[in-house]
Design a protein around this nucleic acid. Structure first.
Lengths: 214, 214
DNA sequence: TTGTCGACTATTTTACCAAACAGGTCGAAA
DNA sequence: TTTCGACCTGTTTGGTAAAATAGTCGACAA
C-alpha cells in the first residue's frame, strides 16, 4: 500500500532482476564458461563483489537464469491448460508453446548444442524437474481427453512420456546434427512442421484407439 | 571355378576383413582417437606398415568399418521390404531393425554419445547417405500402404521424414541425456517401447486419415 | 606381382611450468 | 542494507620440449 515501505526491498529485487537479465544475455551469447562475473557486474554498473551480495555463486546465478526461463514457460503452459478447451486443442497449444521455448533457447544460444548440453549438465535437476511437470501436464490432458471421450490410449502415462521424449528428441536432433538447411530458420521451420505432424498423428491415433473401443 | 585362381585375392580379402573386424572392436571400445594403427596391426599379427597396404589411411579404415555396419543394416532392411507383407508389418519390422542397429552401435561404443557424435563428424556423409536410403525405403512403404488402401497421408514424404527423425531423435536423446535409469538395459527397453508406441500412433493415425477420405 | 616389414620423417599429443585470470572472501565504508 | 578495494586461491592459458603416432620408402621374401 504505502509506496515508501516497499522502496528498499523493491530496489533490491529490481537490481536482482537487472543482474539476472544481464546474466541471461551473456550466458546465452557466450555460454557459461566464457562469461566472467566482472563482465556481468560491469553490465549492471556494479563491482564484482556486489554480485555476491545477491547470488552466492556463479552457478547459482546461472541456475536462477534457467529457473526464470522455465518458470515463465510453465506459467504459460498452466494458463493454457486452465483455459476451457478441448484436449486436442490443448495438445496443439502445448506444441506451440514448446516450439516457442525451443526457438527462444536456440535464439539465445549462439552455439546451439554446446550450450544446450552445457545447460543440461549444469542444471540437470532443473531440467528434469521441468520435464516432470511438463509430463504431468500432458498426462492430465490425455486423461481429460479420455474422460471427455475425445480419444483414448491403453497407457496414458506412457503415451505422455513418449510424446514428451519425441518432442525433445526432435529438438535435440536439430541441435546435435548439422542439417542440410543452410539457414537456421529453415531448420526451425522444418522442426515446427515435424512437431505438428507428430501431434496430429498422436491425436488421430488416439482418436482411432478410442473409436475401436467405441 | 578354379580354386587356385582365387587363392591369392581371396587371402587378401580375408586379411582385409580380419583387419576390419579388429578395427571395429578397437574403435568401438576406445573410440577413434584412442586407437593406434600399431594396436590394430598387432591384433591381426602384422606390422603397422602392412595395414597401409590395405587401407591408405586410418580414417579410410574407420570409414570402412562404418560402411560395413551400414551395409549390413541396409541389406537386412532391403530383404525385409522385399518380403511380401502388409505395409504395416513392414513398418513394425523396420522399427525392429532400427532398434537393433541402435542397440548394437551403443553396445559397441563404451562411451555412448561421444562415440556417436565422433562417428558422425568423421563420416557424416556416410550417415547422411544411410539416412537418405532409409528415408527412401520408409517412403516407399508408405506409398505401398496408400496404394493397397491400408492407410493414407497428406504428404507421405514429409511423414516418412518425420518418422525417421523421430526415431533418430529418440535414440539421440537416450545417448545425450543421462536418463534416470541406472541400468543401460532399462533405458534401452524404454526406448524400444517408445519406438513401438510411436509407430503404432503413426499407423493408427494414417489409418484414420485414410478412413476419413474413406 | 603380392605381401611384409625395419628404419625413417613429419606432425600431432602430451607433460610440464610459469604467468595471467577468474571465482570467491573479508573488512571497511557509505 | 548495499557497495567495493584489496586479497587469496584454484584453475586456465601460453609456450616449449619430449614422446607418441600417422604415414612413407626401399629392401626383402613368397
Amino acid at each position: 500500500m504505502c509506496p515508501r515501505a516497499e522502496t528498499a526491498p523493491a530496489k533490491a529485487v529490481a537490481k536482482e532482476e537487472k543482474i539476472l537479465e544481464a546474466a541471461r544475455k551473456r550466458f546465452a551469447y557466450f555460454g557459461f564458461p566464457k562469461v566472467t562475473m566482472d563482465e556481468i557486474a560491469a553490465d549492471v554498473g556494479l563491482a564484482k563483489p556486489s554480485l555476491y551480495y545477491y547470488y552466492p555463486t556463479k552457478e547459482s546465478l546461472f541456475r536462477a537464469v534457467i529457473a526464470s526461463e522455465q518458470t515463465r514457460f510453465l506459467g504459460n503452459l498452466e494458463a493454457l491448460l486452465a483455459r476451457e478447451t478441448s484436449a486436442q486443442a490443448k495438445l496443439r497449444n502445448y506444441v506451440d508453446l514448446r516450439y516457442d521455448l525451443f526457438r527462444e533457447l536456440a535464439n539465445l544460444s549462439a552455439l546451439g548444442t554446446q550450450t544446450y548440453t552445457e545447460w543440461k549438465s549444469l542444471s540437470g535437476d532443473l531440467f528434469r524437474a521441468l520435464e516432470e511437470k511438463e509430463l504431468g501436464m500432458i498426462h492430465s490432458v490425455l486423461l481429460q481427453g479420455e474422460r471427455s471421450g475425445e480419444f483414448g490410449t491403453p497407457d496414458p502415462l506412457h503415451t505422455a512420456r513418449t510424446l514428451l521424449h519425441v518432442m525433445h528428441g526432435l529438438r535435440l536432433r536439430l541441435c546435435a546434427i548439422p542439417t542440410g538447411a543452410v539457414l537456421e530458420n529453415e531448420a526451425y521451420a522444418a522442426l515446427r512442421k515435424e512437431m505438428d505432424l507428430v501431434i496430429t498423428m498422436f491425436i488421430d491415433g488416439m482418436k482411432s484407439h478410442h473409436s475401436h473401443l467405441h
